[in-house]
Amino acid sequence: MLFSKKQVPFKDIIPDGYVDIHSHLLANIDDGVKTVYQSAYIIEQLKNIGVKKIITTPHVMQEIWPNTSETIITKRAEICEILKSLNITIAFEASAEYMLDDLFYKRLKEKDIIPLSGNHLLVEMSTFAAPINLNELLFEMKLAQYIPIIAHPERYSFYHNQMHKYDELKERGVLFQLNLLSLSGFYGERVKEVAIKLLNGNYFDFSGSDIHNYRQLEVLQKGFPAKYAKKITQLMEKNAVFSE
């Protein structure tokens, strides 16, 4: 694999057997795709790029997107039927991206949770502030024997000037998932800068596309700076733990 170009297309970076663990590809359930055919198109394009398995993760957020496990499972079955009718063959599963809020605490207690794989859970915080009971929620997850994976930590602006906060989360056993789009500058230069800093510091454990729509697909397909290509591929290889 050559990384001599200034920008390396995503298809040249992606490792064999890649599992995308963060996306919003269940139709009309959150701020992701709006129709099953939009979903099918993006899924087919991801397959063509080289993605071997998708674990899509709709938002679960109180008042805004209070999706239940039943809703997610039903929507996933709907997409699988469409994929079958279009002869698009790819492993397509569903979990969720859980906002660390009161609804999550309630769902955790009721065991109304869909893990990514095994006991891993993808969770997120507001991009403006950490929940005041963050430590309590992390402790409750540990009691329930779940391993938290924080989605896109590079996007949490309240930590950008407090890098020690990332260290504290890692010390608590929290895993980090990089949004690949962050490295393209899609969320702004500051997020890109922090993403690169965390990538070079080996903070990230996994990666994901966090793809919602056609525009993000186009950005993802264009790829990433060549100087980080090898590092990105090595990170993406860690997602192999979700292949089963």
Rank of each mutant, 00 (worst) to 15 (best):
M1Y: 12
F3G: 09
K5T: 05
P9L: 08
F10C: 15
D12T: 14
I13K: 08
I14Q: 03
P15H: 06
P15W: 09
D16M: 14
D16P: 03
Y18Q: 07
D20T: 02
I21Y: 10
I21C: 06
H22N: 14
A27S: 11
N28I: 01
I29W: 00
D31Q: 06
G32H: 08
G32Q: 03
T35V: 07
Q38R: 04
E44L: 10
E44P: 00
E44I: 00
E44S: 11
K47M: 11
K47E: 10
N48C: 11
I49E: 05
G50M: 07
K52L: 10
K53F: 07
V60C: 13
Q62W: 01
I64M: 14
W65T: 14
W65Q: 08
N67P: 12
T68G: 01
S69W: 01
T71L: 13
I72H: 03
T74S: 15
R76P: 00
K84Q: 14
K84M: 09
K84I: 11
A91I: 15
A91H: 12
E93K: 10
A94K: 11
S95T: 07
E97R: 04
E97T: 08
E97D: 11
L100F: 03
L100Y: 06
D101A: 11
Y105A: 15
R107G: 00
R107Q: 15
L108E: 09
K109H: 13
I114G: 00
I114V: 07
P115R: 11
G118H: 02
N119Q: 06
N119G: 00
L121T: 12
L122K: 02
L122G: 01
V123L: 11
E124V: 08
E124C: 10
M125N: 11
M125H: 13
M125Y: 05
F128R: 04
P131G: 00
L134N: 00
L134Y: 02
E136Q: 14
E136A: 03
E136F: 02
F139A: 08
M141K: 05
M141H: 06
K142Y: 13
L143Q: 13
A144K: 15
Q145I: 02
Y146L: 09
I149E: 12
I150T: 04
I150W: 12
A151Q: 08
A151H: 08
A151P: 01
A151F: 04
H152F: 04
S157R: 15
Y159F: 15
Y159D: 03
Y159A: 06
N161P: 00
L169H: 02
K170I: 07
R172P: 00
L175N: 12
L178K: 05
L178E: 11
S182A: 15
S182W: 09
L183R: 14
S184H: 06
G185R: 04
I196K: 14
N200D: 14
D205I: 08
S207F: 01
S207Q: 01
I211K: 03
R215I: 12
E218W: 02
E218S: 11
V219P: 05
L220S: 09
K222R: 13
K222L: 04
F224P: 02
F224T: 10
K227A: 10
A229K: 09
K230S: 06
K230P: 00
T233L: 13
T233S: 13
A240K: 12
V241C: 10
S243Q: 14
